[in-house]
Amino acid sequence: MAKYMILIYGDAQQWDAMTAEQWKAHDAGHAAFWAEAGSRVLDGRQLENAPTATSLRADAVGQIHTTDGPFLETKEGLGGYYLLEAADLDEVLALARLLPELNYTHSGIEIRPVVDRG
């Protein structure tokens, strides 16, 4: 078994513009994903939108700078994640197709294997 991070990206403005009705359908999609994935979900959260982010970077002399906003300024920001346990990438791909972010063109998901130190 291996662990995978599912990173959910999307346009925060579009998420903010969703109606209560749309959110209900969206949440039902996540519930369906969770039901199908079962105990393979180790963790999963929605994140507050990118404008609430705080980033830290060090400069060339080691001085740490705190900035307001996400680490990478992009139109589509990180909106949530799942940490999954699965046998292989095909298993994750099959589950990930259930995610409601794939019902919109502004959002999508990225799958990253978690480094296994044995």
Binding site: A2, A87, D88, L89, D90, A94, I111, P113
Partner: peptide, 14 residues
């Protein structure tokens, strides 16, 4: 290897 792309013939649904 790292993303564990399986060495397998996909199932009927895929």
């Amino acid at each position: 290897a790292a993303a564990r792309i399986p060495y397998r013939v996909p199932g009927p649904d895929q």
